[in-house]
Amino acid sequence: MKDTPHERLQPIRTLEDLARSLERGEVDPLSVSVHDVLEETMHEMERTQGMPDLDYVGDYLSAAGTVIRAKSEKLLPPDESEDDEAEDDNEAQGDIDSASDCDEEWSNEALLAHLMEYRVFQDAVEELARRDEAWRGVFPRSRPSEINIEEPIISTEVGLAHLLSALKDILEDAPEEEFSHVPQDELMLEEGMGSIRSVIQENGEATFRELFIKPVTRSKVIAVFLALLELIRLREVVVRQNQHFGEIIISFVPET
């Protein structure tokens, strides 16, 4: 094993930073100190304790993991099936141009391909970040629901109380269940969302009652109802009433 002094690690924030370090040949997998990576990571975790942004922390850990994985792969004995010539070439050239053959060192193609694909989007990300900031201070005359963050989730005409009372009617019609065994239905929410989508897709909209034609048991009714709430929360569907005490109608959120 090479006797390289351990390089002091640059703080790694995202895969992007890692890619840059790669590009400049700053990080040789063998010279990365696992201890440093862990120390930096712990330090970063402590720093963010006040404002834990899980996405940020996740990205950070992912980057740290990538570096450590690269090192661990380098430490393993080379695969017999790997290209012997490339290995010999590296031996012959020695350390003279260690910086320039950094790409060779990193011929971990899967990782490189991944970083490539990821990097391709970085210009776009910069552009979006710039526009996000610039357009934050531009207030449109009309504040559409999609921009207004404070928008109530259920449309004003139909409140949760309406939905619950409509649900009660449906439940009263649903037959009692045998409770001799508890059926395992882990995917009921997803299924319910799927079935609501397909009912709406048929006619472009659906009445509240139509959503519950298929489910016959009380637990299925509840599942479909929860699925409806979830779809409302995700703003995939809206509920409305065309008149007081009229049918509750569910439709997809229109694309404006």
């Binding site: 995202t14 996405d55 940020y56 990300v125 970040a129 934050r136 207004n148």
Partner: peptide
């Protein structure tokens, strides 16, 4: 009028 937050990097 509800100034929006800028979006996170992720």
């Amino acid at each position: 009028v509800g100034v929006r937050q800028t979006l996170s990097r992720p």
